[in-house]
Design a protein around this nucleic acid. Structure first.
Length: 491
RNA sequence: GGGGGCGUAGCUCAGUCGGUAGAGCAACGGCCUUUUAAGCCGUGGGUCGCGCGUUCGAUUCGCGCCGCCCUCACCA
């Protein structure tokens, strides 16, 4: 559907009619954009108290349907908690007040006061004593039966989607509950919420391409952060032993049903802990969230059975890789050959990067029920402590759920000298030719480490993806209110 | 960036094997005092995503462009 935001839309005729009604209201001394309407109860509350005929109630909401019957009219009004029918009678309201109804439209927001009764058809209804016009709508609502179907319009005009599709509203209410519960869970365990810079002079903590911005007064180019990790670890150095941050990361990469350029992460660090503790914490947290949302232990996501029964499966990266491919992960020749078989692009890829790509292509799609994938190769885990008995591996896990990578965690590397070496290895590995930004060594972070960071476990959870699984959506755009879209063009 | 699909009234959708388009909802006028996807009678509303081309004639065919969706690629 073409969206012409720059030109005027074809609803000009409807808008003109509504402007005339607005003027008519003003002419009869009624302000069409009202003020505070206090003392109301929500429609949901009213419904849960159903049965008290004659009770006086006061509420407000948006008109979603009008059914006129000569000298009476029924309307449906809706707020975020539900919908209720209201009944206007000329006999009851008086001719003057009743006459104002002809200037009301579907989409207007009104406040009503009246008494509850039940119609013959058994519908709880408010017989209106008086009403106020709180906001006159100049544009029509989407079709009352089908609502907004066009995905582009749903994302661009999310407000209309929220009004006309209660499933959309429900998704975002659940998202809010998930984040709230997460905070409560962490507060109960004495984690402290912090906020660290989103504008950073060096984009560190992950490998993605950053967005670049500029500070005028300082004459300074800055990056929108790709991860908060290096700042949160500075806080560990500073003696904050349990910290977390829930906020946006920005990555200047492709967009897909699992990637939005800005996305929300929970990242947390716990001093004196390791990745085993992080596994425990992750499992408890996500299990608790699912139970709180009433999903039970078993549910279906994207036509796949998911079983949350604890304890969750733990399997090493190497074993999953070798079981699925039959290839020795440490044999670079075999890995490259396998990549070609699977048509995984090999160009410019180092040995273990390639192994990781193969893993994502061949193994990840099988991981529907929660699985902790353990012990990633050191070469692709520069911030992670190496395993004592196998120094080419690290104490790191990723949690897969619904075949999505939901969490990434490790035992943090706290040796500043080794950290420097690992950064240098990494810089060698990744030669980024993108104009305008260079991967840099974060000397300030290394300086902090040299003051001593306690051993710690760290965990990142992709909140958007977790919400996807817990609300049954397969596109990340369905769980982000305003996903990034190209601005519509008019030409 | 590659491949595939889609774009018709404010919204949801038909349709035109090339002769400038229809329905339902919404809107407008009328009737109707318990309806609820209210009903009945009547009316208006469209550069058929944008541009170029072929043609007597393009919403329809061709090419280019724009946007969205799916998919592949890119992606510590």
């Amino acid at each position: 559907m073409a969206v012409r935001l720059n030109g005027f839309e074809m609803s000009e005729e409807i808008r003109k009619r509504r402007l005339e009604k607005l003027e008519a209201l003003r002419a009869s001394g009624v302000e069409p954009f009202g003020r505070k309407f206090g003392g109301i109860i929500s429609i949901g509350d009213m419904r849960s108290r159903e049965g008290k005929a004659g009770e006086k109630v006061r509420t407000a909401g948006r008109i979603t349907a009008i059914r006129g019957h000569g000298k009476t009219a029924f309307m449906d009004i809706q707020d975020s908690s539900g919908k209720i029918q209201v009944y206007f009678k000329e006999e009851h309201l008086g001719a003057g007040s009743y006459a104002l109804l002809e200037h009301l439209d579907i989409g207007d927001i009104i406040g009503v006061e009246g008494s509850l009764f039940t119609t013959r058809a058994g519908e709880l209804t408010i017989l209106v004593d008086e009403f106020s016009i709180l906001s006159k709508a100049l544009r029509p609502l989407p079709e009352k039966w089908h609502g907004l179907k066009d995905t582009e319009l749903r994302f661009r005009r999310r407000y209309l989607d929220l009004i006309s599709a209660k499933e959309t509203l429900a998704t975002f209410l659940v998202r809010s509950r998930i984040i709230k519960s997460m905070r409560r869970f962490l507060e109960e365990r004495s984690f402290v919420e912090v906020e660290t810079p989103m504008m950073q002079p060096i984009a560190g903590g992950a490998a993605a391409r950053p967005f670049i911005t500029h500070h005028q007064a300082l004459g300074l180019d800055l990056y929108l952060r790709i991860a908060p990790e290096l700042y949160l670890k500075r806080l560990l150095v500073g003696g904050m032993e349990k910290v977390y941050e829930i906020n946006r990361n920005f990555r200047n990469e492709g967009i897909s049903s699992r990637h939005n350029p800005e996305f929300t992460m929970l990242e947390l660090y716990q001093a004196y802990a390791d990745y085993e503790d992080m596994m425990e914490l992750t499992e408890e947290l996500i299990y608790a969230l699912a139970q709180e949302l009433g999903l039970g232990e078993k549910f279906t996501y994207d036509d796949k059975e998911i079983n949350l029964a604890r304890p969750w499966k733990r399997e090493t990266f190497t074993r999953l890789f070798e079981k699925s491919t039959g290839v020795d992960i440490d044999d670079e020749k075999q890995v490259r050959q396998k990549a070609q078989e699977l048509e995984v692009p090999t160009q410019g890829k180092a040995h273990y990067q390639l192994a990781n790509d193969i893993f994502e292509a061949a193994v990840a799609p099988q991981l529907a029920s929660p699985t902790f994938v353990l012990d990633f190769p050191r070469a692709i885990s520069p911030l992670t402590r190496a395993k004592e008995d196998a120094p080419h591996l690290t104490e790191r896990f990723e949690l897969y759920l619904g075949t999505l990578e939901i969490a990434n965690a490790y035992t943090e590397l706290n040796d500043p000298l080794e950290q420097r070496e690992r950064f240098l290895e990494q810089l060698k590995l990744v030669e980024d030719k993108e104009a305008g930004w260079v991967r840099e060594l974060d000397e300030d972070f290394l300086l902090a480490l040299e003051h001593g960071m306690p051993p710690a476990g760290g965990l990142g959870i992709g909140i958007d993806r977790l919400v996807m699984v817990l609300t049954g959506h397969t596109s990340i755009r369905e769980v982000i209110l305003f996903p990034l879209l190209r601005p519509p063009s008019d030409v």
